[in-house]
Design a protein around this nucleic acid. Structure first.
Length: 207
DNA sequence: CACGGGATCGTCT
DNA sequence: GACGATCCCGTGT
């Protein structure tokens, strides 16, 4: 059962980044269904966060999706080749989004491996934002897709319940600590001890 | 396992 | 024309 529009009415992007942990992310692309449990996320907030595309560039053709309605997907290409999956948070005009940084593969894992050209199963299948997007068959063509439309090719389902004590928080990845003070914000969240998390953080904040 | 460099191109200046 | 919310592979330990 895909989560309906009410799940996406949470307007606090940091709360949403934590709520998404333990949820099942499902795609149905080219007739192939694959899924993984979200184990790592990052929050990006438009109005005061220099790490957020919407803040750095304002409203442009690319960032328009972030300024659009909640529950839609913001896909963009990083470093010219890596697709990134984000979930838009907040009503139109509120330019916030959650980056999905890692999933634990759970359904049709062999198909996910094929998409990544991986013969043997290892954590490298989905322990990074570009990797998980490719494993799920996602590309920029899913940009602005609605997660709660019944005929959408990507959606989210309830799966595991994650206690607040099982969540770690730390600084986001890829933010230069010398450029902006928001690089210190502990807006990267992951399930404590999960082996599919993208990279260990040396500065971790248990609750 | 840690580190470093190269790949590669859409997007914005 | 420069710059990434990254990944992969090579090298060295």
């Amino acid at each position: 059962m895909r989560l309906d529009s009410t799940f996406y009415t949470e307007s606090d992007v940091v709360m949403m980044a934590k709520s998404l942990l333990g949820k099942k992310l499902v795609t149905h692309i080219n007739g192939e269904c694959t899924a993984g449990i979200i184990v790592e996320t990052e929050a990006y907030r438009g109005h005061d966060d220099k790490g957020c595309h919407a803040n750095r560039h304002g409203l442009t053709p690319r960032t328009a999706t972030i300024f659009g309605p909640c529950g839609h997907v913001y896909m963009y290409i990083c470093y010219g080749m890596h697709p990134m999956l984000n979930i838009v948070v907040g009503d139109s005009g509120q330019a916030d989004a959650v980056l999905v940084r890692a999933i634990e593969p759970v359904y049709n894992i062999d198909i996910m491996q094929r998409r990544r050209s991986m013969e043997k199963l290892s954590k490298s299948l989905t322990n990074g934002p570009g990797k998980l997007a490719v494993s799920l068959g996602l590309s920029k063509s899913q940009n602005a897709r609605c997660l709660f439309d019944e005929d959408s090719d990507i959606w989210i389902e309830n799966a595991e319940s994650v206690e607040i004590n099982d969540i770690y928080a730390g600084p986001r990845v890829g933010m230069s600590i010398f450029v902006a003070e928001c690089s210190n914000w502990a807006w990267r969240f992951y399930i404590k001890g999960n082996p599919w998390v993208s990279k260990p953080s040396h500065i971790e904040y248990p609750w």
